[in-house]
Structures are given as C-alpha cells and as structure tokens.
Design a protein around this nucleic acid. Sequence first.
DNA 1: CGCGGCTTTGATGTTCATCAAGTAAAGTGG
DNA 2: CCACTTTACTTGATGAACATCAAAGCCGCG
Lengths: 228, 228
Amino acid sequence: MNITCVCEKCELRTVFFENFKGNQLESFCSKKSEIFYQQGDFVFHEGDEVTSFSYLKSGVLKLFTTTPEGKDQIITIAGPYDFVSLLGIFSISHQTYSVAAIDDAVVCHIDIQEIKEIVKKNGEFSLHLMEKIGGTSNKIIRESMEIRRKNTYGKVAYILLKMSRDIYANQTFNLPLSRREIAEYTGVTTENVIRAMSEFRKDKTIRINGHEIEILDMEALKRISDYG
Amino acid sequence: MNITCVCEKCELRTVFFENFKGNQLESFCSKKSEIFYQQGDFVFHEGDEVTSFSYLKSGVLKLFTTTPEGKDQIITIAGPYDFVSLLGIFSISHQTYSVAAIDDAVVCHIDIQEIKEIVKKNGEFSLHLMEKIGGTSNKIIRESMEIRRKNTYGKVAYILLKMSRDIYANQTFNLPLSRREIAEYTGVTTENVIRAMSEFRKDKTIRINGHEIEILDMEALKRISDYG
DNA sequence: CGCGGCTTTGATGTTCATCAAGTAAAGTGG
DNA sequence: CCACTTTACTTGATGAACATCAAAGCCGCG
C-alpha cells in the first residue's frame, strides 16, 4: 500500500532534511515512496539488494539476522524516527539483516542513488546525516554490550524499560514483542524470559495482562536492570 | 612522541583521501598529528572530549568500556587502517569508550572541526568517509551478535581466528591479548578462556608458546567457531 | 472442532562461573 | 643482582545459573 506524502508537511523533514533548498526537495520527493506495513510484514530480507535508504515514520520494527541454525537473533528494535538503514547501506550492496514490522508501521523509502547524489552536493546534509545515522549505530553497539553483561533477569528488565522509555514513552504499553522475540533479542530462552516476567509480576514490579504491560515500580525494575 | 608525516606519501591517503584536491590536502595536513603509542598507552579515555578524528596507521588497539562494577569490556580490536573513531564522533561531544594500544601503534589524529569542514565542502569525500566508517560500525555490530550466540569454546576459537585472519593475516602470530583480555572481549571468565585454549592445544588444533600462537588445524578451529 | 502457535510451570541436566590453590613470569626496591 | 611483591597463567573441585525437556492450558483460526 502506497501513501502519497507531501514532503513540506512531513514531520521528518525537520529532523534531518532542514538543509534542503528549493529544487533539491522537489527532486527528493519525486524519488521516495511511503509504504504501510502490517504487523508481521517484512520491510526487507537479509540478502536483498540495497536499493533504498529507509526511515521509520510510525510503528515499531525489528532488525534481525537468522543464525546458521535457523533461529532469529534480534539486533535492535526501532521506533518512530529511527533509521532502518544503518550506515552499511553506503558500503554494502546487499542487506546484512532483515527488517519486519512488529506493530503496524509506515516506512519512507528514498532511492539510495538519490541520497548519494544529495550527499555529494549538499555538505550540510551530509554532516547531518552522519550525525543521525552515526548516533544510531553507536546506540546499537552500546546496547549490545550492555545486554551482554547482564544476567537473565537484568536482560529482561532492560528490554521492558527500553520499550517503555524509548519506544512508547509511557509506563503502560502494549508489548509488541512475543516472549520468544524477547528471548531472541536478549539471548535467553523463552522459558526463562517468562520466568523473569512472572517473577516481576509476583513482586508487583510490573502488571501483565496478555501483551499489555504496566510498570508499577520503575525504580525496582531499573535496579534489576542495572545490577542484574 | 610526535612524528612528522608527509601526506603525499602516506599510504592511507589512497584509502579515503583520494578525493582531495590541491589546497584541501595542504589544509588537512597542517591540522593533523601522527602519534606513537607504546603497548599499554591510552589513545583516549571514556569521557574525554572528542577533539579529533583518528585512524590507525600501524599496530593493534582495543576499544573498550568499563562496566559499573569496574570491569573492562572490549568492544572490538582494531588493526592497521581501521578507524578508531566510530561514527559517534559526529554526534557526540565526549568519548563513549576508551582506546588503548595492545601492541605498539601509530595513530593519525585529524582535528574534528577540520573533518567536518571538509565533509561540508567535498561531497565525494563525505560519501567515501560514510562508506568506510559505516562498514566499520556494521562489522562491529555483526561481530557482537556473532560472539553472543556462540558457546565458550566457539567464542575463544572465533577470537583466535579473527586475530589470525583480520589482524595478522598469518597462521602464526604473537597474540597481543592477555587471557584476561580475551575474557573481557568474549564475556567468558579468564579460567574458561584458558581451559578452551588448553583443550585446543591438547587436540593439536593450535600450538601455544606463551603469547605466540600457531593455528595447526584451521578447519577444526573454524568448525568450533561456527558450530560451537 | 481440532490443530498449531504462544504461554506457562515444573523437573532435570549441562554449561559455565566461582572458589581455591599453586606455578610461572614480570616488575620493584634494596 | 637478588629477595620480594605483584600480576598472569593454569588446573581442579564445587555450586549456581540457565538451557533443555516435558506437559498442560489457552486462544485464534481454518
């Protein structure tokens, strides 16, 4: 499903296209497409040719790879205004990971050649793009290191906090990740993710109602994440 | 110790400064400094202000963070021509990790403002820089995910293979990492790193003589890394 | 209705961290 | 240069954390 988009009104323009001038914006608009993805849809698959630079307008996506044993391993979760394309897009011809919607999402795709042309012509834009995309890569690296050093309970607490803080900015939210996906994200088994969450529930740290999660004791959850 | 460097002869110029023209190169040269670091020296500390863009001319460096418990956690190992500054340098004002030499190294520092100016003025250079630096970030992310899913023996085998292949391009090499550093890199205890390496030695997969390592059975080590 | 996927809990086993203890190597001060 | 201290390395024994296995309940959907 293709939605028409008037760039001038796009809330993303201000985020990193503020350096566009006149016909640059026009040229840019003609080459992009905004696509709606239903929960479960793939935005692209590992191995696909890289043809566009993509960013997330709304919804939630997961970036993941499939291990040789056929299990999925989630690299990170992206929320509104996050980049779907990491910097690799400038150096690789084929995707090194898959992206799928875990909540209904709208992704804006811009032809990669077009972006490259703009980078060459517009220095301010280049710098801005590097800042944004570099910050994203950096965050992923730091997050990965952080998850690695936590124990099972800490890992699960960390994910819940991240979803609450970074993605939904709310203590109550509809967890778009299944228990198995949290497992694939943290590197813990599904059973132990459930055990951790059940424990948090019993301790009145969180309230669970299916996929609806409410963080009741933020401080306790932070402690578990930090010291666990 | 400050070494003078004639840019025109620098082997790195061809790597990503091939787009420089006339006075750009001159201006660039005047703002950079090439520094020698002895094994153990810090290139910079986590929290330091970001003042330069740095790349490694020779030697081996470790990029690492210190956990709240005071233990080091190695993010990655950098070899010749690798970037020391990840893309974060364009978005952050202070270093988010420390860098230290684990083997005598020469690092070239370029004033960060200077790089930013060049990015703004020279589109080809911007694109080239994005390609290189993006590839580096991407590799770190993939490596982190890969290490995470391996078991203890697989992790250690992976590191040995990486040092042999990526850093030294030789089956025999002088391992610059202590057993403890391999532990900090893989997230395994020092004792278990040693147990894994002893096992490899007993199986005649590797030969150990202090810090000198020779990979005797490359295929076996790959199998352990891939399926372990 | 029944099948398959997701969730949950309990029992069991394996992996790996921790603890302990000793040797070797490398730096330090007299 | 040698006693001394400290740091790196090594091996074994024990226990805790976590994966695996098993079984059952709970939807949602064809």
